[in-house]
Design a protein around this nucleic acid. Structure first.
Lengths: 174, 174
DNA sequence: TAAAAATGTTAGTTATGCCAAACAAAATAA
DNA sequence: TTATTTTGTTTGGCATAACTAACATTTTTA
């Protein structure tokens, strides 16, 4: 249980990148890791040694780098967090794709399990609840610019919401 | 514009704590800073010197510590973020108060301006939109446990939502 | 005011984690 | 197969940021 908390953000980034390289390039090479993390080749060696000592990568000088099962598990967790956060930021908060990705990349290291689960559940709730869903999200963007609410429009919005739902339900039953 | 990006999380924490001590204790003392940040007294001196060099605190050995206008501005920004994130996590995602605070404390250093603004706007939207609001949030907690949706209940929920809104609107007009 | 206690600073150490540059090994090309 | 290029490693250095322990200054108390 402590294993992951003891991992620095830097080492988590290594694992994430190695997993990605493993899947896209079949194999991870120090040069590519350096490129992805935007650090020098020389710095990678130290990171790999640290991960090797923690039993998270299989590392032998001059040979290919692979994740151990333990390393793979952590790498997948971070990757999952990254994707979940990025999608939430982009699809719900609707920040641009680039910002969403960059922010997710930093948040993935500091968010805890409990909060992450809640956020993903919330993401799901927003998307699947008939009271929210896509049109509600579209309205959010407009709200950001306008801000003061018009009670008249709210009434119409609610109306559309309920009739849309019933129509969809009707089609589903048919 | 670079000023803030160049600040480490550690130094941001110092500023945040100093601001809080200034407001609650009138003045910030090294001992209290150490206590709040859970570090040794000796470590504080170094932090203060770094902040002094950046023009963010007024620091003279053995005298009281105060924020400069620039330091105060950053401290208030971090504090605002902390509170906003904490409240979102607690009131929307409904994670327990302690986790919300601890998570906010880490996220405040990595979230960017754009995303933060969007999140706060979203927070506002969720709370003030008639389609969401408190009852929708209450339903979220139940949804977390149950998960599969019951279309029948959804219809009733929508119904209650719209009639509640009209009732409230009616009262407001009267 | 002088001793004691509390608070603050300094100095030396440690751990991360990066860099640049020199060097070593492996892969590729001639 | 030898030379060249690419890739990987080592070394020494630097910055951050913490620690401990010794020392200095304030503040309190007797």
């Amino acid at each position: 249980m402590k294993k992951n908390e003891g991992l620095s953000e830097s080492l988590e980034d290594y694992l994430e990148v190695i997993l990605d390289l493993e899947t896209t390039n079949k194999v991870a090479r120090a040069k590519d890791i350096a490129e992805r993390l935007d650090i020098q080749r020389g710095s990678v060696t130290g990171g790999l040694k640290a991960l090797e000592e923690k039993g998270l990568v299989n590392y032998e000088p001059y040979s290919y780098i692979t994740l151990t099962p333990a390393g793979n598990k952590i790498a997948r967790k971070i990757t999952r967090r990254h994707a979940g956060l990025r999608d939430f930021l982009h699809q719900v908060l609707q920040v641009d794709a680039e910002t969403a990705d960059a922010t997710a990349c930093r948040m993935e290291h500091v968010i805890d399990e409990k909060t992450m689960n809640r956020l993903m559940c919330f993401f799901d709730y927003v998307q699947s609840c008939p009271r929210t869903g896509p049109d509600w999200l579209a309205n959010f963007v407009r709200y950001c610019g306008e801000k003061p609410r018009d009670p008249e429009k709210c009434d119409q919005c609610l109306q559309r919401c309920i009739s849309r739902y019933r129509e969809e339900e009707g089609h589903r039953d048919a």
